[in-house]
Structure formats: structure tokens, C-alpha cells
């Protein structure tokens, strides 16, 4: 089965101030990405688990005592005081301006609910110009506007959440979609299941977040 999820990894890891995955996963993701960016709220937590961000970005109101220690290891601080954008937006804007085409984001959820919803909106906006993945300990989410093919195990949970609306066709799911429309507030595609060793999601219009819960997290 063809798997092209690796195009959603490798360039930039962005940590925001929600609930971060386990230290082992964060450390592994940091190794697998060329650049580690922490928003100022997440920077000190990265440092606590032994991950040194290359860049810290934000209004620097919550980086605290970690700033001095991070500065000693060469971390670059990009002070962005604007209140017009949240720290995730600032980080993704800077990455896009720096030539990065991919970002894996951790810590998106689990904090305050308005922050989580706002982060989803920010991610959807930037996903129009960057390949964006979100990760936690149990799942991988991919913002897909074209096609995604992923290896699965039978029974793996797969959810399809439109960023606004999307028309798509699926292969390899228990409840297939055939050129059908998903729309926020109208119809979502949560908690579907893979039936074999791979799935293919083709998005004809709009964008969906494909959230895959592998039976075995690799």
C-alpha cells in the first residue's frame, strides 16, 4: 500500500501551549524535524523535557526564566507583540516567510477551549499554503486538500473533519464516501474505520483533516 504521509513531516516542528504529547514523542519528533519552533508559552516546557527549540516566537509574556537558559544554547527569540494574531499564527507565518513548506504542530488542544478552536481556524488558514500535520500520543492529523494515502491496520479509527466544507471520495474505509460533501455544522465524518492495510482520501473540493488513530503508533 502506498503511503505518502511522509510529505507531512520533516521540516518544522511547532509546539504551542496546549497539552504536549509525552516527552518521548516530543523528543522523537524534534529529532525528525529540521527546525524546532516553540511559541513562548511552550518553550519552557520543551526545555523541561530536554528539547531545545531553535526559535521561540511570540509576545514573550510567558517564556519566563527559560529565556536565559535558551539564549545560552543559541535559541533565536523573535519578539512578535501583535495582538492581532495568536502565537501559532505568528509561528506559521514566520515559517512560511522563511521558506518552510511543512509544519507538524503539537500542543494544539487540551488547553482552553477557545484557544483550541482558534488554533483549528489558524491551522486551516495556513494549510492552504503549507502541508500541516497535528500530532498527539494517540493520533496523527493531516490537513488534506488534494489526496492522502496512508498505511493502516484493519479497525484503525479514521475521522474526516472538514475545515469548512469538502467534497471527497474515500477508499479503504468501512463507510465509504463517493464524491460526497462534508460540511461543518451539517455533516462530519468522525469515527470511521479502516478495513484493510491502507486508505486513500481524495479531496475534490475544499479541505478535510484526516485524523488517523493507528492501532500501533509507529
Amino acid at each position: 500500500m502506498i503511503d505518502d504521509t511522509d510529505r507531512f513531516a520533516g521540516e518544522a516542528l511547532v509546539a504551542v501551549a496546549g497539552v504536549l504529547p509525552s516527552p518521548l514523542l516530543v523528543a522523537r519528533l524534534a529529532r525528525e524535524h529540521a527546525l524546532v519552533v516553540g511559541t513562548d508559552g511552550a518553550a519552557s516546557r520543551l526545555l523541561e523535557i530536554g528539547v531545545h527549540p531553535d526559535v521561540v516566537i511570540g509576545d514573550m509574556d510567558s517564556v519566563g526564566d527559560a529565556a536565559e537558559r535558551l539564549a545560552l544554547t543559541g535559541t533565536t527569540f523573535l519578539h512578535r507583540p501583535s495582538q492581532e494574531a495568536n502565537d501559532l499564527d505568528k509561528a506559521l507565518t514566520w515559517l512560511a516567510g522563511s521558506g518552510m513548506t511543512q509544519a507538524t504542530v503539537i500542543g494544539v488542544g487540551g488547553g482552553m477551549i477557545d484557544h483550541t478552536l482558534n488554533n483549528f481556524s489558524v491551522l486551516a488558514r495556513h494549510a492552504a499554503t503549507m502541508r500541516i500535520a497535528i500530532r498527539d500520543d494517540a493520533s496523527c492529523g493531516y490537513f488534506v486538500g488534494d489526496r492522502l494515502r496512508a498505511r493502516t491496520h484493519p479497525g484503525d479509527r479514521v475521522s474526516l473533519i472538514p475545515t469548512a466544507s469538502a467534497r471527497l471520495t474515500t477508499h479503504g474505509l468501512e463507510w465509504e464516501l463517493d464524491d460526497e460533501k462534508l460540511q461543518l455544522g451539517v455533516r462530519e465524518g468522525a469515527s470511521n474505520r479502516a478495513v484493510g492495510d491502507g486508505i486513500s482520501i481524495t479531496v475534490h473540493e475544499g479541505m478535510v483533516v484526516v485524523v488517523h488513530y493507528p492501532a500501533i503508533m509507529e
Binding site: E11, A12, A34, L35, D54, V55, T76, L78, L95, S98, G99, M100
Partner: peptide
């Protein structure tokens, strides 16, 4: 001085 080479970050990361 601190930021004069910030444009290299993405190049040097990859």
C-alpha cells in the same frame, strides 16, 4: 547583530 543572519535559519536547518 543578533538577527542579521536570521534569514539563514531555514537554509541551515535543511
Amino acid at each position: 547583530a543578533r538577527h542579521h543572519d536570521v534569514g539563514w535559519i531555514a537554509f541551515d536547518a535543511m
